[in-house]
Simulated assay, not measured.
Amino acid sequence: MINTLTSLRFLFAMMIFGAHCYVIDSFFDAHFFKEGFVGVSFFFVLSGFIIAYNYQHKLQENKISKRTFWVARIARVYPLHWLTLFIAVILGNYVVASDCMDWLKHFLASFTLTNTYIPKADYFFSFNSPSWSLCCEQLFYFCFPFLIPLAKTYKRLLYLFIPIAIIVVTGMYFTPEDEIKGYWYVNPVTRFPDFIVGMLLFHLYNFF
């Protein structure tokens, strides 16, 4: 089961890659690749499942502490993120404004993975733009230990998932199309339901 889920990464990674190739050829802006963005949701769901699979019982049984979990997650995310960020700074010649202080604010937001909480493209796509997904993962990892009491039964997770999902869908409906990406697509809080779906799938996996 785990190997099968993991192997799907290649398929959805190719969908995401293809969805970004529209700048090369218009073919990639249609058909299979046009919906490539769903690959991001898949990876968030997969993250919820894998994290629950590896850590839920350990945290419930106090075999590891919240601190140990967070340190492991930070060590996995930040070093590589900082490396790619500095490479982007050196090679990308990124300019946000003539004001040095403005540049520094954008850089610090990216450095701390808080840039996607600001619904402006020059923030959430600044420097190394794919890192916006790491901002979401950071929130998931921070919240996961606090979800452990709710994770004892799938019903409790559903009680959390349903209202958040309704708010997100409703909010997207009333948000102007050109602002949806900033407020709903890259925002870590509004991507949280994806992660919870992964945790719910882990409950289903345990059931069988």
Rank of each mutant, 00 (worst) to 15 (best):
F146Y: 12
P130K: 04
G182S: 08
G92E: 04
L158T: 00
V169D: 05
K34A: 14
F49H: 02
F32V: 07
P193L: 06
V89T: 04
I167S: 07
C136I: 14
Y205V: 08
C21I: 01
K58M: 00
N93F: 10
C135I: 00
I2N: 15
P130G: 06
S129C: 08
K63N: 14
N93A: 09
F49W: 03
L134K: 11
G182E: 13
F10W: 10
V168Y: 07
N3R: 06
H57I: 10
Y123S: 06
A165D: 04
A30N: 12
I164G: 00
W184M: 10
H203G: 06
P149V: 00
G182K: 12
M14Y: 09
L46P: 09
L46M: 14
V23I: 11
I87A: 13
S41I: 05
I180W: 05
I167E: 04
Y53A: 11
F127Q: 09
D25Q: 03
Y141G: 07
L108S: 09
P145R: 01
G171Y: 04
G182N: 08
P188R: 08
G39P: 09
I166K: 01
A30D: 12
F174S: 08
T190E: 10
F44D: 12
S41V: 06
G39Q: 10
N115P: 05
I90M: 10
N62K: 13
F127L: 07
